[in-house]
Design a binder for these strands. Sequence first.
DNA 1: GCGACAG
DNA 2: ATCTTGTCGC
Length: 373
Amino acid sequence: MAEERIEIPDLRRYTLELLRQIPKGKVTTYRALAQALGDKRAARAVGQIMATNEHLEVYPCYKVVHSDGSVGEYSAPGRTAAKIQKLQADGIPIEDGRVVRLREYVFHPFGTEKPLERLRKLQEELAGRVVREAVLSPKDVRTVGGVDLSYPGPWEGVGAYVSVERGTGKVLAGRTHRCEVTFPYIPTYLAFRELPVLLPLLRRVREEGELADVLLVDGSGVLHHRHAGIASHLGVLLDHPTVGVIKRLLYGSVDVKGMQKGETRPVRDPQTGDVIGMAVKTHERADPLYVSIGHKVSLDLAVRLVLELSGKHKLPEPIRRAHELCTREAHVHRRPKGEGAGEIDAGSAAPASSEPQGTPKKPKKPRQMALDL
DNA sequence: GCGACAG
DNA sequence: ATCTTGTCGC
């Protein structure tokens, strides 16, 4: 079978590049940019991208205001006052922190391929390939893996994989993978942020022969607006059984009041009435988890594994351990508060890294606008 | 008041 | 997810 490939855009860069289309004397809004990306729900992500813009001379993020005309924040030196001054220098009239007659100054018609539209279609196609039945009988599930991510910074991810033996709970393997992340968190598009971290990690795990029989993923499976959460993406792309596990409901309806430990209740698709997941009470005094099919498992098997592997904790062991692993790994490399060229503290926890510190940075060659996975 | 959004 | 001290409850 041909290796599955999927093209994920560098949405951070794509969004920043859009800023250069704004004509002199005009502004735009977070929402307009989100619509240029293909989904107005990405407005907050646009804000995150602007807030971490490191090239103020190249990408004029000061030109982005709220759709009600209020100027909004400016993370660069001078904060909002500086943003207002720059806008006024461009001839934009501002009163009381708002752009006067915004409609006359706002720019909408971006030249764009609306990348998020393509990604939604990709999700729909992938949903059609999800196998909703188990390919193994429960007794043949010997090992269960868990995956999770942590973020040392908004554009840097650490993925972790842990596998445990069913029954004994013995930890069999643990691996992490750290890399740059160029796709922001956008509700319902989580897979495109995390796949570039998890796929390389899990392909390596598989090469090493350490891939567990079933994978528990910290994210939704078919319990998703387009029935294509990250657990399903991973399952289909790896052609491997996966289960989606989330702590907060993304989509679907269920009444979870008064649930007892061990109890489960079906989550239904509001549109069709189909059961697309299960609320699972794994801990007496904790909100339930929401479990769904990722790929090649039945909902029954998914729920059974989650319940069985959730000992005295809310999260099933493989995910809990993967969470610990990547959180710890992220912390070790976490940037100091001020972001800039801060020294990594020489505390005892820091691993002995003997990187040559004096390596001169080469001028960046033009980076790719998309990642092939 | 509306919308509601995993990580 | 991340930023964060102590505090309430079982």
